Every structure is written in C-alpha cells, then in structure tokens.
Amino acid sequence: MRNPLLPWIETDVARIFTMRWNRAAWRGFSLVELLVSLAVLAVLLVFISQIFGSATAVTGSRNQRMDADAQARAVFGRMAVDFAQMMRRPDVDYFLKSAVGDASGSNPQTGNDRMAFYSQVPGYSSASAAMQSPVSVVAWRINESDAGGPLNHLERLGCGLEWSGASSVAYSGPSGPLVSASGDNRISSNWPAAVSATQADSRYENAGPQVFRLEYYYLLRGQNVNGVVFPSMASATPWDTRIPGRSSVDGLRDVAAIVVTIAVVDPKSRKLITDEQLAALADRMKDFDASTMTSPGDLKTQWQSMIEDAGNGIPPSASAALHTYERTFSLSPAL
C-alpha cells in the first residue's frame, strides 16, 4: 500500500534541490576561483608582454644594423669610384701611409688614417668650364678638430683642377694645374688641408657622419723578379720592400688592392656616446700590423672584439650598435 505521505516527501525533496541550485547560480564564483583566474590572467599578460618586448628589441636592433649597413655601403660606393678613377702614374704624387720612410719622409699615420691622391672625378672648382680639367685632388679623413667640422666624422675633399697652363696661379689658389709652374706637384705642399686631420676647408663634405674610425692597408701583387718569387702579401707600405730597389709609391705598381676598414655607430645610439668616449674607443682599436694581421679580415676581427669588450668605456646599450666593415678595392695594373 502506497504511503500517503510519499507525495509530500517527494515534493519537499524536489523543492530543496531546486532551492540549492538556484542559490548556487545566484551566488556566482567563489573568492578562491576569482584569485585563480586573476593569477592565470596575470601570467598570460606577462608572457604576452615579454613576447612584444622581445619583438620590439629585435626590430630595433635590426633597424640599427640596417642604418649602419646603409652608411657603410654609401661610403664604400663613393670610395670605389675614387679608386677606380685614380691616376696611377709614376709622375704624380700620392699622400698615402707607409710604414717606412720614402722621399717625403716616414708616414706611419698612427690612429685614423688619411689619404689623398689625384683622380679623374668631378670636384669643386672656381674655374670656368673652359678651364676646368677632369682631374681632382681627392682626400679622405676622420676629422679630429672642432675647427675642421663635426668631430669623429668621415669627410671627403674633392678639389677640381684647371687645365695645365690655363692660369698662372699655382696651387696656393682654390684651383691650379696638375703640375705647377715650379714643378712641385706634391699634394702636401700645395693642398695642406688634404693631408691634415684638423685643418678646416670648406670643400670637405661630411661623407660618413656615423663613421668614427678609418684604417687601410695594401695587398701587394705576387711577382717573379729575376727568378725570385715574391708571393702576394698584406702590407702597410704601398710598395714591395722585399724587392731590391723598390723605395717609393711609383704609381702603386706593386699594389693589387687597397683594403679599407671602417667602424660605424648607429645614429640613435650615437646620442648616448660623447665625442671623448668615441675618440677613446677609436684609439683602442689597433692600427694595421703586417706582422700579426696577415690576411684580410684580421683587422676587422680585432676591432669587433674591442667593441664587444665590456671595458671599452661605451654604455652597453650603445655598444651593440657599433659595427665594423671591410672592403677590398682591386686596382688595375699601373701604366
């Protein structure tokens, strides 16, 4: 026989379960559940921010490298034109570094190197078109004086020359013939600003505003002289001192190529470095030494190790934006 109270019991049980379910739905999440959710959200936010931070750093570093690469390409491209049109004759003068003495004296050029030579490229000239020759005096240097322009910047000088005999004015003027009336065509005598790292000249242009170190050396040709073989070698002197009788540039006849090494700083990072810090770092970057640097790339490697040295005096955030570059400019055989 069915208990008459059973329907009432079933109704009460159903009402109790319904009330509990409604109360749980109205109550929402517990405090523990909220804390766990917030902790998971915080971990996700930290992880995402780290991803964006890493991406930003990589992008910034890549942009800095691209800026330095663009500067190096522009400088090397300009040098390539100057070297390709260089007048390579024994009767013209060159201002190039040499580790031993020559007719004009020893010119080791410690620190940043300088160079000056005659080249068949356009240059600044006050002469009329009828008197201007296709030859210019070209010079490259790192400026080391406030009087000469911005400090620690690579500069290029291009002075157009007149046709020989077009004017009686010698090299002391703003332009002059390739060979002066006195017969003295030495660049150091007639174009003092072209051989100086500090003398001001309005014709110097800022060719590499982010280049703060310049060094170059020579790759000598392999030659067979009177049955004696002289293999190709890197040298700090623009003639082969191993061959008897060779003691001058002589149109660079012994030089197969000129190797130029430069150091570049990113323009944004340069704001973090003082001129004094940059000059001190440049002094610590070694000159070319043929006794220890026998192959192209050795000098660049030494410079890069100095840049990566924690004790180089440059803020770590800026050291990563310093880069070194090297290019070999092949020369055709001299006339």
Results as ranks from 00 to 15, higher is better:
residue 329 F to H: 07
residue 162 E to H: 07
residue 274 T to H: 06
residue 99 A to G: 11
residue 5 L to W: 07
residue 76 F to G: 10
residue 110 T to K: 14
residue 256 A to N: 10
residue 114 R to Q: 13
residue 59 T to L: 15
residue 314 I to N: 03
residue 259 V to I: 15
residue 252 L to N: 05
residue 206 N to I: 07
residue 90 P to V: 07
residue 110 T to D: 15
residue 188 S to H: 06
residue 150 P to S: 12
residue 236 A to G: 11
residue 95 F to I: 07
residue 91 D to N: 09
residue 19 M to R: 14
residue 85 Q to R: 13
residue 127 A to N: 10
residue 201 D to K: 00
residue 90 P to Q: 05
residue 251 G to A: 06
residue 53 G to R: 14
residue 162 E to P: 00
residue 143 N to V: 03
residue 171 Y to L: 09
residue 107 N to V: 10
residue 85 Q to C: 12
residue 315 P to Q: 07
residue 285 M to T: 08
residue 282 A to P: 09
residue 128 S to D: 15
residue 334 A to N: 03
residue 6 L to F: 14
residue 234 A to D: 04
residue 211 V to C: 00
residue 325 Y to V: 06
residue 124 Y to T: 10
residue 148 G to K: 04
residue 222 G to Y: 03
residue 213 R to W: 06
residue 8 W to E: 15
residue 168 S to K: 09
residue 134 P to H: 08
residue 88 R to C: 10
residue 292 T to C: 00
residue 177 P to E: 02
residue 72 A to L: 01
residue 327 R to P: 04
residue 51 I to M: 12
residue 74 A to S: 15
residue 95 F to C: 10
residue 143 N to Y: 05
residue 251 G to I: 05
residue 322 L to C: 01
residue 294 T to R: 14
residue 45 L to C: 12
residue 232 S to M: 11
residue 33 E to V: 02
residue 254 D to N: 12
residue 193 A to Y: 11
residue 218 Y to F: 10
residue 21 W to T: 14
residue 73 R to G: 02
residue 1 M to K: 14
residue 239 W to A: 09
residue 207 A to V: 01
residue 167 S to T: 14
residue 86 M to C: 10
residue 286 K to S: 15
residue 65 R to K: 02
residue 204 Y to A: 10
residue 312 N to T: 05
residue 272 L to E: 11
residue 275 D to G: 03
residue 290 A to M: 08
residue 204 Y to V: 11
residue 326 E to A: 03
residue 311 G to W: 06
residue 240 D to F: 00
residue 325 Y to K: 05
residue 114 R to M: 13
residue 166 A to C: 12
residue 244 P to I: 09
residue 268 K to T: 09
residue 120 Q to P: 00
residue 252 L to R: 01
residue 298 D to V: 04
residue 48 I to F: 13
residue 238 P to S: 04
residue 334 A to T: 06
residue 157 L to F: 06
residue 199 Q to S: 13
residue 270 R to C: 03
residue 265 V to T: 02
residue 284 R to C: 05
residue 114 R to S: 09
residue 209 P to W: 02
residue 107 N to I: 03
residue 133 S to M: 07
residue 196 S to M: 15
residue 231 P to R: 07
residue 39 A to C: 12
residue 139 A to S: 13
residue 328 T to M: 14
residue 42 A to K: 05
residue 321 A to I: 05
residue 10 E to W: 08
residue 227 G to P: 11
residue 97 K to M: 08
residue 190 N to Q: 11
residue 112 N to I: 06
residue 39 A to I: 11
residue 164 S to W: 01
residue 299 L to S: 05
residue 232 S to A: 15
residue 71 Q to K: 03
residue 176 G to S: 11
residue 51 I to W: 11
residue 291 S to F: 07
residue 93 D to M: 00
residue 71 Q to F: 04
residue 326 E to K: 01
residue 212 F to L: 02
residue 39 A to Q: 12
residue 155 E to L: 08
residue 295 S to A: 13
residue 88 R to E: 09
residue 40 V to W: 12
residue 57 A to R: 15
residue 16 I to W: 13
residue 156 R to T: 09
residue 35 L to S: 13
residue 73 R to L: 12
residue 64 Q to C: 04
residue 32 V to N: 07
residue 185 N to H: 15
residue 224 N to W: 00
residue 172 S to K: 15
residue 281 L to I: 04
residue 63 N to P: 01
residue 309 D to H: 08
residue 196 S to K: 14
residue 176 G to N: 01
residue 273 I to C: 06
residue 26 W to H: 14
residue 305 S to T: 09
residue 58 V to R: 13
